[in-house]
Simulated scan of single mutants.
Amino acid sequence: MAQSLKLQPLTSLGTPNNVLADDYVHSTFETYKFKANTTNGGKVDYKAKVSTAQKDGKLAVKVNDEAKFQFPFLEKYTFQFCQRRSGDIKLHFDLGNFTIYNKSWNFFSNVKTDTTLSKFNFRLGTNYFGSSCESNTRLELVPGDAPVLTHRNYIKKGSIYYGGVFSLNLQTLALKRYDALFGYASGKYEANLKHESDTKDVKELQVGTLTATATYFHDDNTKLALEIQNKGHKLQPGFTVGAQRKVNSSLTVKGKVNNKLELSLASKYALNRQFTLTAGLQLALKDKNPVDFTKFPPLPIGLQLETNF
């Protein structure tokens, strides 16, 4: 079981609330996802995003895509190859799990480069997954740059969960990232407070982005959420409210609006076990003419097709 490949990015504490985050696909005109799994743990993932823009009076189309190939070998290890259209290449090796002092530890290594092979990022790391605690550590080595140590902890005890992640420049002892999350979930309510720092080296702690989120679960099919966010030391908070409704086993609809009066809507429909279609759009309610026919599409809309085999 390749546990290191199931993690979110190591510098992330995740998004506990998906009402305001997932399925809003209006940022790109079209998105295609293809996933295939083999019986022995092999996987193929392909994702392509198509965006459009007006350039010199003509329609310009841009495609960003990436492909991932994952397969096990020697029964214990897993190898993954990733490449993006931008030229990024990543080779990831999951070295399996080892029992140390009666606890299971997962080890991994990966290399990031590009098609020119001009720069390499080497990473070595370990993961520990306990019944109530998850701990992840990674050392990143870049020839010519200072080594960086990243560590993350996530703990859940009853209704309370909290976590933290930091990245430390081992040469200057400057923090590159210092994030924290604290949350409470019980019954029909969930609330959490999250801090996300800047990604630049800093000599002293600074206020980054603070996000407070509250969710109310009206029933098994309906969720309501409120998010308040403030960036930097100035008190200039923004807010977003949203709702999600599972209409039936195949259809889910959701919407959100923020303090800038940007209304986002999304609908996700499972055609069958293999195909899922998501459509979304955004309306700038404060604009007198939210529809601009000089652009294509005239509204920020997006379509996403997911295929699973």
Rank of each mutant, 00 (worst) to 15 (best):
M1N: 15
Q3R: 15
L5M: 11
P9A: 12
L10Q: 08
P16W: 06
N17Y: 06
L20S: 01
L20K: 02
D22R: 11
D22I: 06
D22G: 08
Y24N: 02
F29I: 00
F29C: 03
E30L: 15
E30G: 09
Y32Q: 07
K33H: 12
T39R: 09
N40S: 12
G41R: 15
G42S: 15
G42D: 06
K43P: 11
V44P: 07
D45Q: 12
D45P: 07
K47R: 15
K49W: 02
A53C: 04
K58W: 00
L59F: 09
L59Y: 05
A60N: 06
V61H: 06
K62Y: 05
V63N: 09
D65R: 03
D65Q: 03
K68R: 04
Q70F: 04
F71C: 00
F73C: 12
F79T: 03
F81P: 04
F81H: 09
C82S: 08
C82T: 09
R85V: 05
R85T: 11
R85C: 02
S86A: 11
H92Q: 08
D94S: 11
T99S: 07
I100K: 02
I100F: 07
N106E: 09
F107H: 08
F107E: 07
N110K: 08
T115L: 14
K119F: 12
G125P: 03
G125C: 04
T126M: 05
N127V: 05
Y128E: 03
G130Y: 00
E134R: 06
S135G: 13
N136T: 03
N136Y: 01
R138T: 09
E140W: 02
P143A: 05
P147H: 13
P147N: 13
P147M: 14
H151E: 08
N153C: 10
K157L: 08
K157S: 04
G158A: 10
G158H: 02
V165Q: 10
V165M: 11
N169H: 00
L173D: 10
L173N: 12
K176G: 14
Y178W: 13
Y178Q: 14
Y178M: 13
G183N: 15
Y184V: 06
K188R: 11
A191Y: 02
L193H: 05
E196I: 09
S197E: 03
S197W: 00
S197Y: 01
D201N: 14
L205P: 00
L205S: 01
V207P: 00
G208S: 01
H218W: 06
D220L: 14
D220M: 11
N221K: 14
L224I: 09
L226P: 01
I228F: 00
Q229H: 02
N230A: 11
K231H: 12
K231I: 09
G232D: 07
K234S: 12
K234N: 13
G238R: 15
V241P: 03
R245G: 01
R245L: 13
N248I: 09
S249R: 14
S250E: 13
V253N: 02
K256V: 04
V257C: 07
N259S: 15
L265P: 03
A266E: 03
S267N: 05
S267Q: 10
A270N: 14
N272A: 05
L277D: 10
A279E: 05
L283E: 04
A284S: 08
L285M: 14
N289R: 13
F293A: 14
T294D: 11
I301V: 14
L303A: 11
L303Y: 12
L305E: 06
E306C: 08
N308P: 06
F309P: 10
